[in-house]
Design a protein around this nucleic acid. Structure first.
Lengths: 215, 215
DNA sequence: AAAAAAATTAAACAATCGTTTAATTTTTAT
DNA sequence: ATAAAAATTAAACGATTGTTTAATTTTTTT
């Protein structure tokens, strides 16, 4: 019956990468505890023992996903902070551009991160992520506060809450498919990843921040 | 040994209410699947059979929590929409005030709702909540768009994304204790519920929206 | 005070969980 | 072609899950 032998993946993803990809999708959709190793195996058409074989445990599989995707963002942000060729207004625009593209592009992964940050009393992996995110947060705040100190932005503005508004807007949209579809006026969730919708969010955010920070 | 008999709750909460309260806290902290009936029983110092006894199942306990807390918000919003004594600027201020107080006051419950909205392929209870939230959403959008039509707000503003920014800001803060502590400059999570911090968010939000909507 | 109802308990249930084992197939290296 | 290594499999492991049972205690009603 060799002719019935299943062809596992036309794109020739190796099994390890296939499990990672499938697990990310399921974790983002349902949460860590709700996803069983058996459901990962079934969805990826692999054996239930392979999670232990490749990653050691379900926990370590999750950590691998998080670590694989942890942003190289910090290097970029640090260089942006130190960049003297750009003024503060240009830097804000760049940050919005970069974050918007990044969150939309890796929206599955961002759901994971967002959920981790909302939970407490969690295993080690959560704290690692939270710390990474907070390191980036400090650099961004430094960039924005520099704009205040050099006179580009209003002094009365609450910089930290301003950044919370920017990220909150993006997360609110990416994290909440039903709401996002209502905003976009579509029924298909895939439409949210279309360039025009992202562009609409971009315009809104930049307009919002510009009026807020301007003297 | 009657003198050693345990006194369960000084505030004389009946057992059913105690289980509800404890379960809400644990679900908000750890998520639905991560919380076992045994952990609820242990944390509330009750027997593991009582969840089934009072609520039928873990699922129905969760549904009871959601339904118990489903906002009376819609009645209020509908009356605000139809109120002709208030102008659009006053209505926006009121909406911000009400939502801010409400989300902070029931921050545990809001974590649950937010998480439900981010997950897909969930049991029935999730859809119920999502639909309720979306009904409120439509009323709010109607109120804001009325402000545009009567000339109070700029026509160029993206009303739906504006509301996403307001809610996103609030949720970002309430849902993310670590970030919120960094913003507030405190280490104790309890400090986030202090009136001065909420007041700070309120001032930021109103200032942000005012500049954004004003001509 | 006796009877009925409600609340609470410990123990057990089957089902599912993550993980391990040991055998087998497939791939790689010699 | 043969041997070694890696990948994959089915089956089983003990632990934990939500739930049910039946007995007991507590409360309420008569």
């Amino acid at each position: 019956m060799a002719f019935l032998k299943k062809v596992k993946n036309s794109e020739s993803l190796d099994t390890r990468a296939l499990i990672l990809k499938t697990a990310l999708k399921l974790f983002a959709e349902q949460g860590f505890e709700a996803v069983s190793i058996r459901s990962i195996a079934k969805a990826s058409d692999t054996n239930i023992a392979l999670v232990s074989y490749y990653f050691g445990s379900k926990e370590k599989l999750y950590e691998t996903i998080l670590e694989d995707k942890i942003p190289q963002m910090r290097v970029f942000l640090q260089s942006l902070l130190e960049d003297k060729a750009l003024n503060s207004w240009e830097k804000v625009d760049i940050i919005i551009d970069v974050y918007l593209d990044r969150v939309f592009q890796h929206h599955d992964f961002n759901k994971l991160v967002l959920r981790e940050m909302s939970l407490i009393q969690r295993p080690n992996h959560a704290n690692i992520i939270v710390q990474q995110i907070m390191l980036n947060w400090r650099i961004i705040i430094a960039i924005l506060e520099a704009g205040q100190e050099n006179g580009a932005f209003r002094m009365e503005v609450d910089i930290r809450l301003t950044w919370a508004s920017i990220m909150g807007t993006i997360f609110q949209i990416v994290n909440n498919p039903t709401l996002a579809c209502a905003i976009a006026g579509v029924t298909d969730e895939a439409a949210l990843l279309m360039p025009d919708f992202i562009e609409r969010v971009r315009i809104h955010l930049k307009s919002l921040v510009r009026r807020h920070l301007a003297k």
